[in-house]
C-alpha cells in the first residue's frame, strides 16, 4: 500500500506540516482543518512470506499437507508437522490452517471471533416490545423464556458480559406468564 496520505476532503497528497501536530492544521490544498497522527508502521517495509523448503534428506520429517516440503514446526492444536507455508503463527502459538479454522468456527480462539448474536437482547426485546400491544405477550413471553433458557450459556457480547438482560427478560416473562395464568384462572372460575 502506498505510504502517502491524502486529505479526506480534497484527496490531495499531504506531504508536510500536518503530521503529528498537537492541534489541527489546515490542509495545504483545500484548507480543511486536519489532525493526522502517523506511526512508524506506515513506513515499515512488508517482509515477503516464508517459502517452504523441499525435503533434502530421505527420512527427514515432512509437512502433513505438503509431503515434499520440509517440516519446521508441529501444530500446537493437532500435533501435525507443518512446513513454513502451513505454519500460521497466532497469539504465540503455531497452528495449522485446519486448527485455525476449527478454532474460529467453534469460537475457541476469541481473538478470531468477529461476530456474535446478542441472545440476551433478543430475549429482552421479546418481552419488552410486545408490551406496546399487550395481547402479543401471551405468545412472546414463553418465547422470551425459551430464548433465555436455551441460550443462557451461549457466548455473550465481547464487551458487555453480564447476564443482566437475560435475568430481566426471565423476570418479566415470568411476570407476564403469571399475569396471563391468573387471568385465565379467574375467567374459568367466573364461568364455572
Amino acid at each position: 500500500m502506498n505510504p502517502l496520505i491524502a486529505c479526506p476532503k480534497c484527496r490531495a497528497w499531504l506531504l508536510e506540516d500536518v503530521f503529528n501536530r498537537p492541534d489541527m492544521a489546515p490542509c495545504p490544498s483545500c484548507g480543511t482543518p486536519l489532525q493526522i497522527e502517523v506511526f512508524p508502521a506506515l513506513f515499515r517495509k512488508l517482509n515477503p512470506g516464508a517459502s517452504a523448503q523441499p525435503v533434502m534428506v530421505e527420512g527427514e520429517s515432512s509437512c502433513f499437507y505438503h509431503p515434499q516440503k520440509k517440516a519446521v514446526v508441529p501444530c500446537a492444536g493437532c500435533g501435525r508437522f507443518l512446513c513454513a507455508l502451513c505454519d500460521c503463527e497466532f497469539g504465540g502459538e503455531h497452528l495449522c490452517p485446519a486448527c485455525l479454522e476449527t478454532g474460529k468456527s467453534k469460537g475457541k480462539i476469541q481473538a478470531l471471533d468477529n461476530q456474535r448474536t446478542r441472545y440476551d437482547s433478543i430475549a429482552l426485546g421479546l418481552v419488552v416490545l410486545p408490551m406496546l400491544i399487550f395481547y402479543f405477550t401471551i405468545i412472546t413471553a414463553p418465547m422470551a423464556l425459551y430464548v433465555a433458557i436455551r441460550y443462557w450459556k451461549a457466548p455473550r457480547s465481547l464487551v458487555q458480559r453480564s447476564r443482566l438482560r437475560f435475568i430481566l427478560a426471565v423476570f418479566l416473562a415470568l411476570l407476564q406468564i403469571t399475569g396471563w395464568t391468573t387471568f385465565f384462572i379467574v375467567l374459568a372460575t367466573r364461568h364455572s
Binding site: T32, E37, F39, D113, N114, R116, R118, G125
Partner: peptide, 26 residues
C-alpha cells in the same frame, strides 16, 4: 470496533502494532 446491527455484533480489531495513521477531519 463494535458494530451492532439488529441483534448481531460485528467486531473489528485494530492491533496497536498495525495502526499506521489516524486522520481527524473537522
Amino acid at each position: 470496533h463494535v458494530e451492532l446491527s439488529g441483534f448481531t455484533e460485528t467486531y473489528k480489531r485494530f492491533y496497536f502494532r498495525d495502526i499506521q495513521a489516524i486522520t481527524v477531519q473537522e
